[in-house]
Simulated assay, not measured.
Amino acid sequence: MVRVKYRKFKKKPSKVKKILFKLIRPVFLLGSLSALAFFFFGTSRFDPSDIKVEGVRRVNSEEVIAVITPFFEEKHLGLFSGNVFIFDRSGARARLTEFFPRVSDVSFKINIRSRELNIIITERNKAVAIWCGVMSLPESEDIINKEQQENCFNIDEEAFAFEEALQTQGTLLLTIKNERSNQELKQIGERVTEESFLKNLLYIRDVFKETSQLGISAVVLKDPDEVVAYTLENWSIIFVDSRSIEDQVTALREILKSQIPPEKRKQLDYIDLRVEERAYYKYR
């Protein structure tokens, strides 16, 4: 007897099912991602439960919170308000430094479990000099109003003006007066000059304080490139900022050491270093 084996016929899936299957997977994935995004961003579940401010000394914490709060109310993509995940950190940092010139840096620390946001503030607290912008008055102006043309600020080591200078600070900090005609009067929150230039001016002060016991009371910037340093002994030194300040300081130290003894320094009127590789001095 002959046995006949029958093979079971497997029905191939239709093209319609294949297409549906290919469509369902991305739709399901997109739906899952949308649900996850809504869970994190579209609900108030991750809004900050509390906002705290750290590191402030002179800046008001409540004002910091008032400036930062709108960043959690703004809509992103027209749908989601800012929460601890998606609020605009760089924008918030820029807004805080704009509102508070004393603030040099801002960082954010988030506790995911408690949804607590800590704003860590770094303030500009150390003034290294006083910067005064002095504008020349027209001849028709009343000399009484001259003080209105001088704005003085405390500046930090990065040359940022962060607060108005007190008159009593003039004896404690180096005073730098800018009398050049091409200057723009600066405001609090602005960089008054290049950081490297400020370092040169502080270098002049520090070198003479350490090596010659010679105090510098003020530095005046004059046209076109003069830097005039006034000593506590009531004589001046004329530099130029178009050449290396370090080279000029070296030349000055040499002339003080070899040609002008300490007992005669008080009789000086000025030392002029404007000519390269030359130093001229004049007694009163």
Rank of each mutant, 00 (worst) to 15 (best):
K146E: 15
I143D: 07
F162S: 00
A161I: 08
N154R: 08
A161G: 06
D142L: 10
A127H: 01
Q149Y: 11
N145I: 11
K177C: 02
F153Q: 08
L166P: 05
V134S: 13
P138S: 08
I144Y: 14
R115A: 11
E163W: 00
T175L: 08
I130W: 05
L117F: 02
E164Q: 13
V134C: 10
F160W: 06
E157D: 06
Q149G: 04
T175E: 07
Q169L: 10
D142E: 13
L137W: 09
E116L: 04
I144M: 13
N178G: 00
P138V: 05
L166M: 12
K146W: 14
C152I: 12
C132L: 12
D156N: 01
Q149R: 11
M135S: 11
S114R: 07
A129C: 04
N178M: 03
K126C: 00
N154D: 06
I130C: 02
E158G: 00
T122F: 14
T171L: 13
L174Y: 04
S140L: 04
K126H: 03
R115V: 13
E141T: 09
C132A: 13
E116S: 05
N118H: 15
I176V: 06
A165M: 05
R115L: 08
I121R: 01
G170W: 05
I143A: 10
Q169F: 08
W131K: 03
T175K: 04
I120L: 15
M135Y: 09
E158P: 01
V134L: 09
C152S: 14
K177W: 12
I121W: 07
S140R: 07
F153E: 03
I176Y: 02
A127R: 00
E164T: 08
L174I: 06
F160V: 06
E116P: 10
D156S: 00
K177A: 04
E141G: 07
A165K: 04
N178P: 01
V128Q: 01
L173Y: 05
C132W: 12
N151T: 14
D156F: 02
E116I: 07
N118R: 14
E158K: 03
Q167A: 13
T122P: 07
F162P: 00
A161S: 09
L137C: 03
Q149W: 11
I176A: 02
R115G: 10
N125V: 13
C132N: 13
G170Y: 08
L174H: 03
I144H: 12
D156Q: 05
N145T: 11
V128T: 06
N145V: 12
R124T: 02
D142M: 10
D156M: 00
T171S: 14
E157T: 04
I176N: 02
A127L: 01
E139P: 15
C132T: 14
V128S: 05
T122G: 11
F160H: 05
N151G: 12
I119R: 02
E116H: 11
Q149I: 05
Q148C: 15
N118C: 12
I176C: 01
D142H: 11
E147M: 15
N125E: 10
L117H: 04
K146Q: 15
L172G: 08
K177L: 07
L172M: 09
I143R: 13
E163Q: 05
Q167P: 10
E163P: 01
G170M: 02
Q148H: 14
Q148K: 14
A129Q: 07
N145A: 11
E150G: 11
G170Q: 08
A127F: 03
I143H: 07
L174W: 00
L173E: 01
N151K: 15
